[in-house]
Design a protein around this nucleic acid. Structure first.
Length: 849
RNA sequence: GCCCGGAUGGUGAAAUCGGCAGACACAGCGGACUUAAAAUCCGCAGACCUUUACCGGUCGUGGGGGUUCAAGUCCCCCUCCGGGCACCA
């Protein structure tokens, strides 16, 4: 062989992702139907595989790479298993960063966003992700957001969308309102240093609380969701059963201030109530303040305190303060008069904003009463008697004392009976409250879906002047004007565009002003996955037939950071669409998987820490296959993953090993494919056994735990063993058929993880067709079976030796061999065997004395 | 404070049902090939003790206790780390 030929041969034997991957990417790009889902009468089972859509920041990060590597492996595997797979991708393309970029670079948000999408789509193609781009959804385009508007009108018609004035969370950086879910520790979810302010504004809300019970009970059925996510949602919904009780206000008061309704979960303790506590913002507190300037000032001070604590996220930490209003309320159960106080620890937006204070049986009330010398009256005692230290808050195995006719009842029983009695007598009722609030969706920003409402200036029948009128479907979409000056001040940018603002009332034709707020971007992501099933539909958000075929999503994959926000809104939206008759499913996703974070040097990657690893760099250095595979190999997918570049290099070496081995035996594989059955050699049997054990293991990993790190480790072991047998193969101790079977299946096993690599080798060994549409290999149990087993033998639980036996040995035979073993004998000598434990297939343990 | 996770070699991790702890990799060390290097291939590798060496022994899955023939795995208590909720009446 000449020097040049030798170099050429070496070059070919070398794994060169920089050549292989672009070659295959070009071929795939030229085949737009490659990953298209079949029409829904395909006669195959369907599988909807979905990864959360990204915000088009312009750059994929490693978290995306990991997310998509998991989803892509699964989608490809399911294709190979014969499923009709829907695997789409889209862009969560509205939102503030586009406006910030516009301010900074003077680029219109639309242009900025669309060019980012282009860039990220390129990166996704470079990664070799199997998306059906014909189903692409871009939420900032009118063909998508018009349906947000359509839904908004439907919800308005059903009373699910409404306007109210309320205290709202205002982020001074975003210059807009935030939903409760977007306030994290009193700070903006996008600006971790920005304290959220409270403002009074009239806003649009979605009545998610109407579905609170269903959202809660539905969690029990979501067995394919992580328990952690379900718990977080349960806490967020915060259902609490209790009783409303009205206390009459003593003395002269205005008619609408004559009672105080308190919410309590412990109505059984009401005989121990020694005061009523109002939130500083409670209507009655305001009414009292209106008559007493001194009181007003004090209440104002309490409010301030609460406000500051809320802003500093230390609501739980502030010292309890209160003011005695000098008024009294009458306990309807006892007829007793108790003082009315205003407390800084009472929240206006939970329950009724008023409580009855029972110091003996509530820790907070106890603290407060001790401080101000209020009465403490014991009304609950342990069933078994005794006077435990106060506050005594137990309700199990506890009974009422000194509680009139209720004395002696168990607490839980008393709660039920007393609530019923309150209802019968007209001063209360059992009730349920939630921590969950209605979803505030108005945003005073430009880059979002315009809310399709107008305010009819003159009014018409049924609508007062300035009243709200929903736009009819024919008036949709309300397009975002292209030319808008974006500034950071002065409320909604749309309010400064007269052509947008001024319109006519669709009912009376008179002058009208458009709503200038846009929708929260979580609206966009609440239903985008339905649009994927019918992305080009221009007469409906999607066809019910198509959605009903594909839904629910079989597997949804994303970060746990969306456990509450996106995933609770999506569930809500699904239920609304079901009630609109659009779909049949109650829940959007059958199974949810939350992957761990990608970290570097022990910390989350971030620009400020300077520990960001760029996917582009990794791909340039090691190729997309190695980068993706490392993301799956370095840790199980649900755990955090520490990115180590050396590890990617290791995967690259592994792929090189496979590549060299497979290409070396291309001729053998071609030869071995010919259907000639010959006897299996010993080498054949050994290698085929490992192969089929590996197939079984990986098949199981895909359907169960998704521990792809061990799947890949198993493939590594297989190739290690096969390469170790190379000299035997070269000596023709293995049959070409066996070598072919191993190489062929090895490629198939790698196809979900390393699609470029598998495609290249598939072609090189002379296979036709698309490797990731080739049926997934089936493990042959017969071939996989071991004919010899290794059985560890322990004496008193300590390992002494490992004996080899035929696989079909029975207990007695194993015992005999174990006892005959020299090392075992030496260990047992001079002692008596008390017990012999033989666990077939596991071990032998001799208990000796 | 309450509710979830988690803690295993120098590092990432494995052990799926109570049955050989550390698979598979990374980093490291030694060797082969090479004029040399890269690439590749082979080997060593939990800690400690013993030994010239082989052999052998003891300890070892955050800490303490328990159940069991047998515990990383089950039970009780504790520490630390991460996440969620938190005057929610």
């Amino acid at each position: 062989m000449s020097e040049i030929e030798k170099n050429e041969a070496e070059r070919q034997a070398r794994y060169t992702p920089a050549e292989i991957e672009p070659k295959w990417q070009a071929r795939w790009d030229a085949a737009p139907d490659l990953y298209a889902a079949d029409a829904h009468d395909a006669g195959k089972p369907k599988f909807y595989c979905l990864e959360m859509l990204p915000y088009p920041s312009g750059q994929l990060h490693m978290g995306h790479v990991r997310n998509y590597a998991i989803g892509d492996a699964l989608a490809r595997h399911m294709w190979m298993r014969g499923y009709n797979v829907l695997h789409p991708m889209g862009w969560d393309a509205f939102g503030l960063p586009a406006e910030n970029a516009a301010l900074k670079n003077n680029t219109p948000p639309r242009e900025w966003t669309l060019s980012n999408i282009d860039a990220m789509k390129k990166q996704m193609r470079r990664m070799g992700l199997s998306y059906d781009w014909s189903a692409e959804v871009t939420t900032c385009l009118p063909d998508y957001y018009r349906w947000n508007q359509w839904f908004f009108v439907k919800m308005f018609e059903k009373g699910l969308a409404y306007r109210k004035k309320s205290k709202v969370n205002w982020c001074p950086d975003c210059q807009t309102v935030l939903a409760n879910e977007q306030v994290i520790n009193g700070r903006c979810w996008r600006h971790e240093d920005t304290i959220v302010e409270q403002r009074d504004l009239t806003q649009w809300f979605f009545r998610i609380t109407q579905y609170a019970d269903e959202l809660l009970s539905g969690l029990d059925k979501l067995e394919g969701w992580p328990e952690k996510v379900r718990t977080m949602q349960r806490n967020w919904i915060g259902r609490s059963e209790g009783t409303l009780v009205s206390f009459a206000v003593d003395g002269e008061v205005k008619a609408d201030c004559s009672t105080i309704t308190v919410f309590t979960t412990r109505v059984d303790t009401i005989f121990g109530a020694t005061s009523v506590q109002l939130a500083p913002e409670h209507a009655l507190a305001k009414a009292f303040a209106a008559e007493d300037a001194e009181l007003a000032a004090k209440i104002e001070a309490l409010l301030d305190e609460q406000q500051k604590a809320r802003e500093a996220d230390d609501l739980g930490g502030i010292e309890k303060h209160g003011i005695n209003t000098g008024r009294f309320a009458v306990n309807p159960f006892t007829g007793e008069k108790v003082p009315i106080w205003v407390g800084n620890y009472i929240l206006a937006d939970y329950g009724t904003g008023a409580i009855m204070s029972v110091p003996a049986h509530d820790e907070r009330d106890f603290e407060f009463a001790t401080k101000y010398g209020l009465g403490i009256k014991r009304v609950i005692a342990p069933k078994k008697g005794g006077e435990p230290e106060l506050p005594f808050t137990a309700e199990d195995d506890a009974v009422l004392i000194d509680s009139g006719e209720w004395t002696g009842l168990g607490c839980v029983e008393a709660q039920r009976k007393m609530a019923a009695a309150a209802k019968a007598k007209g001063f209360g009722e059992p009730t349920v409250t939630y921590r969950l609030k209605d979803w505030g969706v108005s945003r005073q920003r430009y880059w979002g879906t315009p809310i399709p409402m107008v305010y009819c200036q003159n009014g018409h029948e049924g609508v007062e002047p300035g009243g709200v009128v929903a736009l009819p479907e024919s008036a949709l979409p309300v397009l975002l004007p292209a030319q808008v000056e974006i500034t950071q001040e002065g409320g909604s940018p749309l309010g400064r565009v007269p052509e947008f603002l001024n319109t006519t009332c669709p009912v009376c034709g008179g002058p009208a002003r458009r709503e200038t707020d846009t929708m929260d971007t979580f609206v966009d992501s609440s239903w985008y996955f339905y649009r994927y099933t019918d992305a080009k539909n221009d007469t409906a958000p999607f066809s019910s037939d198509k959605a009903n075929y594909w839904f629910p999503i079989d597997q949804y994959i994303g970060g746990v950071e969306h456990a509450i926000l996106h995933l609770i809104y999506s569930r809500f939206w699904t239920k609304v669409m079901r009630d609109l008759g659009l779909i049949n499913n109650d829940e959007p996703a059958e199974r949810l998987f939350t992957q761990g974070m990608v970290i570097k040097d022990g910390a989350k990657m971030s620009k400020s820490k300077g520990n960001v690893v760029s996917p582009d760099d990794m791909i340039a250095r090691y190729g997309a296959d190695a980068t993706r595979m490392y993301a799956l190999f370095a840790a199980p997918p649900d755990r955090d993953l520490e990115w180590q570049e050396e590890g990617v290099a290791g995967i690259s070496r592994f792929l090189g090993r496979v590549y060299r081995f497979a290409t070396k035996y291309v001729d053998v594989v071609r030869d071995g494919r010919k259907p000639h059955i010959v006897g299996r050699t010993e080498v054949d049997q050994k290698l085929l056994r490992s192969l089929h054990q590996t197939i079984a293991k990986i098949t199981q990993d895909f359907s169960g735990r998704w521990h792809f790190n061990t799947s890949i480790a198993a493939i590594m072991s297989l190739i290690n063993e096969t390469v170790a047998a190379e000299s035997a193969i070269d000596a023709e101790q293995a049959s070409p058929a066996a070598v072919a079977e191993i190489i062929r299946n090895l490629i198939l096993l790698l196809a979900p993880f390393a699609p470029f690599f598998a495609s290249e080798l598939w072609e090189q060994i002379g296979e036709e067709g698309v490797v990731f549409r080739t049926p997934w290999p089936v493990a042959d149990e017969e071939l996989a079976r071991e004919d010899e087993i290794e059985v560890p033998v322990q004496v008193n639980g300590k390992l002494v030796n490992v004996i080899k036996l035929p696989a079909d040995s029975d207990q007695e035979a194993i015992k005999t061999v174990a006892l005959a073993d020299d090392k075992v004998k030496a260990r047992v000598e001079g002692k008596s065997i008390v017990k012999v434990i033989v666990v077939p297939g596991k071990l032998v343990n001799l208990v000796v004395k």
